[in-house]
Design a protein around this nucleic acid. Sequence first.
DNA 1: TTTACATATTCCTTATAAGGAATATATTGA
DNA 2: TCAATATATTCCTTATAAGGAATATGTAAA
Lengths: 124, 124
Amino acid sequence: MTRQAHPADVFTAIAEPRRRQVIAVLSDGEEHAVNEIVVRMKMDQSPVSKHLSALHKVGVVTVVKRGQHRMYRLNAEGLKPVHDWVKVFERYWTHQVDQIKQRAERKALERLIRLDDGPNKKEE
Amino acid sequence: MTRQAHPADVFTAIAEPRRRQVIAVLSDGEEHAVNEIVVRMKMDQSPVSKHLSALHKVGVVTVVKRGQHRMYRLNAEGLKPVHDWVKVFERYWTHQVDQIKQRAERKALERLIRLDDGPNKKEE
DNA sequence: TTTACATATTCCTTATAAGGAATATATTGA
DNA sequence: TCAATATATTCCTTATAAGGAATATGTAAA
């Protein structure tokens, strides 16, 4: 699964729990050898290398060859697209009070409109 | 693909570009009928319903039955896990200046260490 | 130059999930 | 009750990607 079918974008890359785990290991911003990551993840070397390769492909990590080791480091900028995307929705939970009020108003309005439509059931 | 194999977590759910598109349509915080989303997405009804169902399963949208329509609304709180996860990495790109300095220092240190190891090649 | 070690890659099998076509279900209206 | 409409669901095919075992590659050290 290496020269074949790595996720093409960051969103897909971080969807894999194992990959978020790799990122967690690298989240101190320091260099780490594959070796070390393997130990920390309690996982075979092969899949770890593959995950690192996948993360590298989408720009979330960088590699430096150092002796017989490959040192991986987090490149957090690669996560910015995700951050930027989700940041837009912050307001929905930060201004809860205003939110709830507005929502209540809307609901009231909707209830009025519903009267024209006859009785209705809810679902969720 | 409906009672079968919907993504189990938000990260996987939003990895699908179409699903982020659905979310974009719902990002005004208002109710939208499936119908309307189908038109806006220029996609068949079946896959749209499936995506909505997937988003509902992970709590990113809510549904209300209203007449013959099902009104979907964004439930942004469902995106909070993603936000919380990625927010941790904000500092890596917001304090760039300090970052670069620290990094330079580290690199210098590393160069010293490398002298013990002999010459090395880089890669990326 | 053989050996040991670190890591990447390939091959294979399997799981997950996307999309389309067809159909089922539910609601409303005639 | 029957037709129309909105939506969900099922079935099928296909694409994507995960993991393990084995192997290749690269580097260092004896």
